[in-house]
Simulated assay, not measured.
Amino acid sequence: MFNQKQLNILVIGNESCSKFDAVNIGNIGDKVYTIDINKKNSVYGFNPINKKDGYHVIGSALELDRYFEPNYFDIILLNGVFGWGINSIEDQRKTIEVIYKVSKKDSKLLIGWNVN
């Protein structure tokens, strides 16, 4: 799966505690997209300084299919969002469903969960 030249990567949730996620994930030439519902967190999202293509979206993870094509992402990082913004079981379920829609068949999903 990861022999292709370019990966499409999505980082969901951008805050100061995860500010290096979008910078460090992937390789030069990959497309890295970030999304956060809070406009002030844009500073922690995608930054072209890391020689990767992509952009930042100000929006809800519950509406990923509004911003991205179906079957697009190879890797999705969902870090620090469940319990810190997407709180209800129903919204968490909806988030996983929409992640499935925008993910390729053999994609990878990494969920970071913090109970503190």
Rank of each mutant, 00 (worst) to 15 (best):
T34R: 03
L77H: 00
V98G: 01
G29R: 08
V115T: 13
F73A: 02
N47I: 09
T95A: 00
N3Y: 00
I37M: 10
G26Q: 04
M1K: 15
E97I: 08
P70D: 14
L64W: 04
N41G: 02
L77W: 00
E90R: 06
Y72C: 08
N47Y: 05
K104P: 12
D106W: 05
E90V: 12
V57H: 05
G112M: 09
G45C: 12
R93C: 14
F82A: 05
W113Q: 12
L7Y: 01
R93P: 10
V102I: 10
K40H: 08
D74W: 12
D36S: 07
N24L: 12
L109D: 13
E90I: 10
K105A: 13
S18H: 08
C17K: 10
L10V: 05
N24Q: 09
I89S: 02
F20I: 14
V43H: 07
H56M: 06
V11D: 07
L110G: 14
N87T: 09
K51W: 11
N47R: 13
G85E: 05
N47L: 01
N87K: 05
Y33M: 07
I49G: 12
K104W: 10
P70I: 14
G112S: 08
G54D: 01
D106E: 06
I58W: 05
S42F: 11
S103P: 03
L109K: 09
Q92R: 05
D106H: 03
Y72E: 06
F2I: 12
K40L: 11
G29V: 07
N3H: 08
L77N: 04
E97L: 12
I96D: 00
D74V: 10
D53P: 09
L64C: 02
S16H: 10
N50R: 14
L109E: 06
E15T: 11
Q6S: 14
T34F: 03
S88K: 06
I76D: 00
I12D: 01
D91H: 00
D65A: 07
L7W: 08
N14W: 04
E97K: 02
N71I: 15
G85A: 09
N38T: 14
N27K: 09
Q6E: 15
D36M: 11
G59N: 03
C17I: 11
E69R: 15
F46K: 00
I111W: 06
N114P: 04
I37P: 11
K19C: 07
L78I: 08
Y100C: 13
L7A: 10
K104E: 06
E90F: 08
G26F: 01
D30R: 07
S42I: 12
K108Y: 02
